[in-house]
Design a protein around this nucleic acid. Structure first.
Lengths: 159, 159
DNA sequence: TTCCAGTGTATTGTATACAATTAAATTGCC
DNA sequence: GGCAATTTAATTGTATACAATACACTGGAA
């Protein structure tokens, strides 16, 4: 009983991250309710505010999302007036995502709103830094493992 | 430039957690592919292996999921032969989730499979403990903030 | 020039998530 | 006992995620 099963600990860590992710999602969704943005929509806008236009592919690399997720998300953003989707003249396979005037105008309001809500979290830079460092390690491990096949292939004969 | 914008740091932390959560999800989905279980399905089974039968509500409390998520998930688990859904005799509003014989039989295989894959992550108990402690803090903050209204109500007049 | 491999986006199908509503059943209160 | 308030699941609608496929387009090889 004194030496805890590492399997269960890992599961608890995974569940903690899973749970925290959902809570953060909810936090941002509430904070951004005045603008009608969800968290994934918001981070898409963040990337675009940093540099636009971008192709769907470029945006997907930054957000770690594929076109199956981004295409409908961007259509919703377009319908709500944040972006326009324009097929590239030079390469018709690409779709360029541009910011609308409204998006440019509202940027500082959104930033300010997020700023207000985030201060409520009251986390120190040290805490945040520490967590981020550890998360990088975990994510690298997960990337490494998934690239080592093993999981999806050979071992499949679990019986 | 030397003092980093805390707003952006928080966003990066949120994104790191969001991203790690997706990677973990993928990791478990690959690891559990031989059994055809997704991560949410797996943690539902974990709770049930610990103690069954449970009502949908009880399961939802442990997993922090509501019936809108659990009902279809449990129907899928039922279709795949892991659980049975039986409306309670004593209170017909409740549905009791029972384990099937297959679920009981396969439990150790699933545990063993997860054990094999998790060792590949190679994280020390100290690392895991440290992350979990910090995640608890973050989640508590997020809970506190969301209960303090402020976000969804009064401040709505951002303008 | 024509064909082909590769690229980029969209679509389809499956599985979460969750807010909001509905429906059924139970409990408490008189 | 009878009815209102509460509880519990299920349903509906919207929004991610992502694998797999389809499709259009480009650039280069033959």
């Amino acid at each position: 009983m004194t030496d805890v099963n590492p399997v269960l600990l890992d599961e608890q860590l995974c569940f903690s991250i899973y749970s925290a992710s959902k809570k953060f999602n909810h936090f941002y969704q509430s904070a951004l309710a005045p603008f009608g943005l969800t968290y994934p929509q918001y981070i898409a806008m963040l990337v675009l505010w940093e540099k636009a236009p971008l192709t769907v592919h470029q945006l997907g690399e930054r957000l770690e999302l594929d076109s199956g997720t981004l295409t409908p998300l961007l259509k919703r953003l377009e319908k709500q007036g944040w972006v326009t989707r324009v097929r590239s003249q030079t390469d018709e396979r690409q779709v360029l995502i541009h910011l609308t005037e409204m998006a440019t105008t509202k940027r500082d309001e959104v930033y300010s709103r997020i700023g207000q809500c985030q201060t409520l979290l009251g986390m120190s830079s040290e805490e945040i830094d520490s967590m981020m460092t550890e998360l990088v390690t975990v994510k690298q491990q997960l990337d490494t493992v998934s690239n080592e096949r093993l999981i999806t292939k050979e071992v499949d004969t679990v019986e």
